[in-house]
Every structure is written in structure tokens, then in C-alpha cells.
Simulated assay, not measured.
Amino acid sequence: MMRFNILKWCDDKISYLKEQEITFKRGIPQLPIEYTYTGIPSAVSTFAYRNDIPEVAKVNALLTYFMFENKLWPRLAKIDDDIEILKEYGGVSGFDLSPSIGMLRPRQRLSILVNAIHACYLGTKGIKILPNYRAGDFGTLCAADYFPDECSFIVGNLGCTNNGFKAYGEYQLDIVLQKKNPSILFVYGSIFKKEAARLIRQHGFEIISFPDRRNRVRNNGRSYRYYLSEDEICKVLYADAAKRRMA
């Protein structure tokens, strides 16, 4: 079996994106505003478990790539085969190769580059993208800033701020939120109401969280909407909030 050559993949896709007149900044393709997802998903699941979403619900659902990296690399090699599948859904969150603190800087930048290429490439094929913010250390913060300002985006469980770097990750996220100024921050995974309150009061948006599959299946995890009303932080079931919006 021929090995997948990530450098050739990047080179081929970058050449294609330049032909499509995609702008590049510091070597990173910039996601055009018209490619971004602006809807409110009825359901969220990973690409690996996309069949959890009923056929009739796909058009209003969002797929994510919050998966282990050994599941992500094959998706790059099969990106063109996946496009027809992805078009069945309302949108797709950005790719999730994970640069991390302590990782060699070139490797961090490669992950961010691949994430950006993936988003822009799918966008050129007519697939709406809810950007996924993912950076490593502060040296890669600017490289991860490849999607438009005032654009809602998604993070996986607050950017997976574990392994002793929780405060660092939260500080990073605050910097990005201040610059991006989204109207909604989507969270794939859980978020405590106390942390949601801090973010909402500091940045002025609302938060919509979707449980990961483990919690959804094993613990009947639910989706929630957090927002500020009359100086109180409210937490309501997302399904109830969506019904009220449609009424």
C-alpha cells in the first residue's frame, strides 16, 4: 500500500486553492466569509459517528472532526470521496489536527496549515464551514487565526485545556474571543455554568454546548444554551430554546 504523503497533499491543495483565488496570510489559506456556516444546528456528531444522525435530520445537522488523530489522517487521503457525504449535512466544523504546547513549532504549524487547507478546500466545494479554533503555543496563535472576525466558531471542550495547561488554554481562548467577537461560541463537550458565565460576561456572546458521543450515549448527555438575561446567566436545554426560536 502506498503511504500517504502529507507534504504532497498540502502542495496539491494549496495550488488548487490559489487557482480559486483564496487569499493566503503568513502561508495559511484564509477562509472566506461566504464559506462560513451561519446556521444553528439541530444536532452535532463526529464524522466517525455520522450515522447517529437520522436521515431526515441531516440537512440541519453539523458534523465535526473532534476525533483521535489516527482517525483523521485517513480522511485527508479520502477528502474527495467524502465530499458527497458531507454535502448531505448542513455544515462541517473545521478539521482538528491538534498542535499542542511542547510540540516542535514546525509540527504545530503543519497541523494548523492542514486544518486551514481542509476548511478552505471543502468551502470551495460548496460545503459550509463552522471554523474550529485550534492553536498550540503563543507562537502559533496568529497562524490559527485563519477565519473571519465576527464569525461564530467551535472549540472542543474549551480547546482540550487539560494536561496542566488549563489556565494557559483559557487565556489563549480569551485572546481569540476578544479579537473575533463571535455572536455564538459553540462547544463540543461539556462546560460548567461557572465557566460559561465568565466567558459570557467578559465577551458578550451566548454559548451552545453539544455533548460528545460518550456522554450522549452512555449518560444521556444533553445540549444546552447559556445566555445573559437581566444580569443573570441562564442555562436552558438547547432543544427547548430552539423550539422557542422557531415559534
Rank of each mutant, 00 (worst) to 15 (best):
L97M: 02
Y133M: 10
G102W: 04
G39I: 08
T140N: 00
L76Y: 05
Y121C: 09
K13A: 09
E230M: 12
V44Y: 01
D12P: 05
G189I: 14
T124H: 01
M67T: 07
A43W: 04
Y168E: 13
T64M: 00
A119M: 05
S111P: 02
V114R: 04
I200Y: 01
V176F: 14
S98M: 07
I79N: 00
I154S: 09
M1G: 14
F186R: 00
A119I: 06
I191D: 01
I184R: 12
L185P: 03
E69Q: 10
R50D: 07
A247E: 14
I101N: 14
V187T: 07
A143N: 06
A61M: 07
E34G: 04
Y37D: 00
D137L: 08
I208Y: 11
L158W: 03
S98L: 08
Q20I: 08
L7A: 10
N163W: 14
L113S: 03
L72Y: 04
K125D: 04
V176S: 00
A144R: 01
L7S: 09
I184A: 06
I191R: 01
D11G: 10
Y226W: 08
T38Q: 15
S190N: 10
S45P: 05
A197Q: 08
A242N: 09
D231C: 02
M1S: 11
Y168K: 14
Y16P: 10
V187C: 12
L31F: 10
L158I: 13
E232A: 08
K125L: 06
D240Y: 06
D174I: 02
R107V: 03
T46A: 10
G139S: 15
Y146I: 13
T64F: 03
L110F: 02
I83H: 10
R134K: 15
E195V: 13
D96K: 04
E195T: 14
I83T: 07
S209K: 02
A135E: 09
A119N: 13
E206T: 00
F192T: 15
Y49R: 10
K180M: 15
F165N: 06
G156Y: 15
R75W: 04
F153C: 15
K58Y: 15
I175P: 08
D11P: 01
P99V: 00
L158D: 03
L17A: 10
I112V: 06
N162W: 12
